[in-house]
């Protein structure tokens, strides 16, 4: 399918990616259209009765004992924070 600049804009919003302008939007539209055109070859494969494989090898849930282990200290967790106040991460206004 053609990934129009409108679709690019919508997907960029869903992805929380600010695009630099019309030129970037046009370029992604061109590139993504070409890629999706290619991957649509999968439509020709007959998959009736075929189970999907979300993992390459069988996986099952694994549980551990519910024991308390040391975690990161506030200080260590905040060490990379772009902005902080007291023991909190600080971000721009949410609401």
């Amino acid at each position: 399918m053609k990934i129009t600049p409108g679709i690019v804009e919508h997907v960029a919003l869903l992805s929380r990616l600010e695009l630099s302008g019309e030129e970037e939007k046009e370029r992604f539209s061109r590139e993504l259209s070409k890629i999706f055109e290619y991957v649509e070859q999968l439509g020709e494969v007959d998959v009736s009765g075929v189970e999907p494989s979300p993992h390459p090898l069988p996986q099952k849930n694994k549980f551990r004992e519910d024991v308390v282990e040391p975690g990161l200290s506030n200080e260590a967790a905040l060490a990379n924070a772009p902005d902080k106040e007291d023991v909190y991460f600080k971000v721009p206004q949410v609401l």
């Binding site: 991957v39 999968l42 439509g43 998959v47 075929v50 189970e51 999907p52 494989s53 979300p54």
Partner: peptide, 14 residues
């Protein structure tokens, strides 16, 4: 059309 189809084709590749 995309994700689920790809998961099934993955089974065939395997």
């Amino acid at each position: 059309a995309y994700y689920l189809q790809a998961l099934k084709v993955r089974t065939l590749v395997k």
